[in-house]
Design a protein around this nucleic acid. Sequence first.
DNA 1: TCAAAAGTGTTTCAGATACACCCATGT
DNA 2: ACATGGGTGTATCTGAAACACTTTTGA
Lengths: 244, 244
Amino acid sequence: MEQISPYISVDCVLFGYNGFELEVLIVDRTLTNDKTHELIFNDQTLTGNHVYVDETIDDAANRVLFELTGLKDVFLEQFKTFAHPNRLLKPNDQIWLQHTGRDPKARIVTIGFYSLLATDKIKLEWKGRNVRWIPIKEIGELAFDHNLILSEALRTLRQRIKYEPITFELLPEKFTLTQLQNVYEAIWDVELDKRNFRKKVARMKYLIPLDEKQTGVAHKPARLYVFSRDVYTKTKKELFDFTI
Amino acid sequence: MEQISPYISVDCVLFGYNGFELEVLIVDRTLTNDKTHELIFNDQTLTGNHVYVDETIDDAANRVLFELTGLKDVFLEQFKTFAHPNRLLKPNDQIWLQHTGRDPKARIVTIGFYSLLATDKIKLEWKGRNVRWIPIKEIGELAFDHNLILSEALRTLRQRIKYEPITFELLPEKFTLTQLQNVYEAIWDVELDKRNFRKKVARMKYLIPLDEKQTGVAHKPARLYVFSRDVYTKTKKELFDFTI
DNA sequence: TCAAAAGTGTTTCAGATACACCCATGT
DNA sequence: ACATGGGTGTATCTGAAACACTTTTGA
């Protein structure tokens, strides 16, 4: 067993999309009395990891993703670091740290990462804990400073999708334009005009239309598209443009 | 003396503008043998600080700025965290850590901040070390992973000025439109068209023209402008727009 | 045959780009 | 009087926004 860097952790905000809403992966944190088996508390956290001594923070974050999905090379990006001296001082958190054998007084710096995942890629169990997707609007109080981490991640995501083609990561490999539009609408919580949206994506050469259609839908089946990272990197240009 | 969090530091990339080029604040790091007074090495670093146990990282970063300028409330923003296990292993860095009484084997997480400053606000001495502005294109090898930190800061800056009005921070309170244009040109290393640039800024209502002109210049004196953060926050709107 | 979502075109307006000359000042 | 940078307008093109109907499929 490799040794842990006791003052560094990573927290991962995993975004998913259920066809209607933006979701976040949440794990249950349940603490019971070892002897009486009575429930002490039951709440929720984001996914996170400690970092091994010889491990980079990116590797540690990727480890979370791998444990949850069995996949390497998932989209994952550092967005902000949280190091407030009081970030672990809520009563439940103190009990939890103590119970899991950590120093509740130690100051832990956590580096926040976010990732976009097709929701069906996730295992529903992680480190013996229950895992589930929760729509972003239904998320209540989370442990530690995880509500703050989540809201900063969402802020970053909303910005990032304006300028980088990453929304595809939330969809199956082959997707329809309506699905893609729905993703933008879910992330921004707005409605977009279908015709204008399609004119816009028509200019994105890296969105490749297939000679393939949806099947099994009770309406005119939509054409399927794939995202070509190859075309994207070849055609993207730096914008020396400012908009404000 | 407050106690230091030994595994957390902040590094600040301070950008300045000399009228022609984008500059970065660099401090000399000179190590001499305590007995013979021979020079062991002489190289450069960014500015940085350790973090006190009860201090937030933002406060620690602001402390650097305050030590250098005597100013509070300077523009300062966290942009990325650097935690590679090998980031302090270059020979000079190991000698330096040892010499300054720190554990050269310890893994230190550093949170990168960047700031924009009018260059005349800086003191030229910091922690007994020499401080100077160096044009970004003339910066050589820096200590630790500071070249990496700098290049990530620059990447962030180039993005950020597209969507946020922060370039003013590099200029005196009252500035001309040509100065402002020069700042954009220096940061992006491009040339912009004067007339089109002015049409663009004419739409920025938070750029307030004054009834005041340059004096003492050997040509038609330019009108002076100020940035109104007040007007900016009142008129800015969220963009639900994507451009790629 | 009906319900459901797919798919499509035009007009109007704002902003991006390209481009050249006269003006006010100090020396 | 001249050198220096300040300041301005027009034409063309591209993309943004607003808006409604026909088509294809499964049930």
